[in-house]
């Protein structure tokens, strides 16, 4: 398939000798306007690739931080149409930062997968991560996404053994997302040595960049992971910062955007140090 902004950005990070920082926020969290403001502020703070979470009522792979972010967004009346609106608004100002939509299959399925990937591409989306569509069901979403020019980024996990890995990688494009722990987002103790071995094993099977996520919280962890990986994914730590910045009624404050960007700056420095 044709090159996407994701391919270009990972190549650029490699040329600049740093790990790419992949940052996740949930669309519509804590409200549409603030969420859009955070979204737009991420590249300047140091995020190289943005993962925008599509809120779903039953986020089975998420830990409490992203569950709560999802609930805040849905309580505010967030919809898929508003997620696309956010992407379009972002693209008016930034035509280079890659955007990945991340979420679960049902909200896509009810819209019709083919129509969804077409709309996503037109809005300016570069890639998708859909947690509950494994390679066994590639025909449903992964192949249509590729045909529409949208990278379908697959998760590889500690339970993906050598025998299964080729199947996971088969139709993957953009990059490979290695899940560093067996578990849900935002939990688990990160073991940089084990991750390094897993990343090497994936790289033996593919030329795609490998980004590592689930459980990265500090600049030091980003640095340690970034030494062996091409990218570092952070999410729960950012949505927790949003939560902690809210007032007693759960509304955004003037500190909400900076709460996220401050953390991003530290993590971006960690990613730079990783390859220094």
């Amino acid at each position: 398939m044709e090159k996407t902004r994701i391919d270009t950005r990972f190549a650029a990070c490699k040329a600049e000798n740093r790990a790419a920082l992949v940052g996740f926020i949930t669309a519509g969290d804590p409200d549409l306007d603030t969420s859009l403001e955070i979204f737009k502020a991420l590249p300047k703070a140091g995020v190289d690739v943005i993962e925008l979470g599509m809120p779903f009522s039953d986020p089975m792979a998420e830990g409490v931080p992203i569950q709560l972010a999802t609930q805040r967004a849905l309580a505010g009346g967030h919809t898929m149409a508003k997620t696309f609106d956010m992407v379009r608004a972002f693209r008016k100002e930034d035509n280079e930062t890659p955007i990945i939509l991340m979420g679960y299959y049902n909200p896509i399925y009810v819209r019709d997968p083919k129509a969804f990937v077409k709309d996503a591409k037109e809005a300016g989306v570069d890639g998708m991560i859909v947690v509950d569509v494994p390679p066994e069901h590639d025909d449903e979403l992964c192949i249509p996404a590729r045909e529409a020019g949208v990278n379908f980024i697959r998760l590889a996990t500690p339970t993906t053994d050598e025998k299964r890995l080729p199947k996971v990688l088969e139709n993957t494009s953009g990059f490979v997302y290695y899940v560093s722990v067996t578990g849900i987002t935002g939990t688990g103790a990160l073991d940089a040595d084990k991750v390094a071995i897993a990343v090497k094993s994936i790289k033996d099977h593919t030329d795609l960049p490998v980004a590592v996520g689930f459980g990265v919280k500090t600049p030091e962890q980003a640095e340690a992971i970034g030494r062996n990986a091409d990218g570092v994914v952070v999410g729960s730590v950012l949505v927790n910062a949003i939560k902690d910045s809210l007032d007693a009624d759960g509304k955004a404050t003037d500190k909400t955007v900076s709460a996220v960007t401050d953390i991003v700056k530290g993590l971006a420095d960690g990613c730079k140090r990783a390859k220094a």
């Binding site: 299959y105 569509v133 066994e136 590889a156 578990g183």
Partner: peptide, 12 residues
């Protein structure tokens, strides 16, 4: 039907 689960569970 089908098997719509995350990769971590798929081998299991």
């Amino acid at each position: 039907g089908g098997r719509f689960v995350s990769e971590t569970l798929m081998p299991l």
